[in-house]
């Protein structure tokens, strides 16, 4: 009796300095499987198609419902979250690779610290006076809230950067996620008080002017965040700031 199986081809790397290599796995098919459950099955009996007792495949994951951003990897050539990659909906064999724009930690796990550094650089926060009770927050139209909410759903997963031809391992481009956060905070009534500081941070090397408008980011974003609107909007804000600084200061 031939049992239905799931075939996986996984690019592995033992540590950041070692050479990557490929391994193939074959596990029994089960309904409702996704790439995560496949990797979990491999954990439970780590063996490749022709070698027993290999180390289990390492990957990053947490929520498994596409809100934490951890399990981002390249699946069949495209970047996406492993949790939403349902086996029934993707091609077999399933080819898994780590994201290519970030340093590999091990196997499918990468270090996305650069993204968090970018958030720090662009001052992605609202400056408040403190956590003491200062009464209600600013009144805001629900339409502005809706725009902000969409932008704020960014889970720093890095899909936009992985797909971006302008974002490379060795340059300093900040990328769509960070630009979109600048827009998010500049849209907030309190955040807008420090809008110029954020704009200054994206008006340098690796900043908004480096964007080549390939717009792969918006296609790759799993949360459908209008990243290219954000880029154009921040372009406008920085252009106006440039003109203002040149003409009025």
């Amino acid at each position: 009796m031939s049992q239905k199986t799931i075939k996986l081809k996984i690019k592995r790397q033992d540590n950041p300095r070692s050479k990557p290599y490929w391994q193939e796995f074959e596990i029994p098919y089960q309904p409702l499987s996704n790439v995560i459950s496949c990797l979990q099955d491999i954990q439970k009996s780590p063996a490749t198609a022709n070698e027993l007792g290999v180390n289990p495949v390492i990957w990053d994951c947490s929520c498994l419902e596409e809100v934490c951003g951890s399990c981002t990897m390249i699946i069949n050539g495209r970047v996406r979250q492993a949790c939403t990659a349902l086996v029934d909906q993707i091609e077999s064999p399933i080819v898994l690779e780590p994201m290519s724009k970030f340093p590999v930690v091990r196997d499918l796990m990468v270090d996305r610290n650069r993204m968090f550094r970018a958030l720090k650089k662009v001052k992605a926060w609202v400056d408040i006076d403190g956590s003491q009770d200062l009464g209600e927050g600013p009144i805001m139209a629900d339409s502005v809230r809706a725009t902000r909410y969409t932008l704020s759903e960014c889970m720093t997963c890095g899909c936009c950067l992985e797909a971006c031809p302008q974002y490379t391992k060795d340059n300093s481009f900040l990328g769509a996620a960070a630009f979109s956060q600048v827009r998010l905070f500049n849209l907030h009534p309190t955040g807008a008080m420090h809008a110029d500081e954020r704009l200054e941070e994206v008006m340098g090397k690796g900043g908004i002017a480096d964007c080549g408008n390939a717009q792969a980011c918006v296609e790759a974003c799993p949360k459908n965040i209008p990243l290219t609107d954000s880029i154009a909007d921040i372009s406008r804000q920085t252009s106006l700031k440039l003109l203002k600084d040149l003409l009025l200061k």
Binding site: R78, P165, G212, A214, Q215
Partner: peptide, 17 residues
């Protein structure tokens, strides 16, 4: 400064880039 990648991400805008 960039690395073209239409091979994997062949969206129309990326082609134009």
């Amino acid at each position: 400064s960039g690395k073209r990648n239409v091979g994997h991400y062949g969206y129309p805008r990326n082609w134009r880039y």
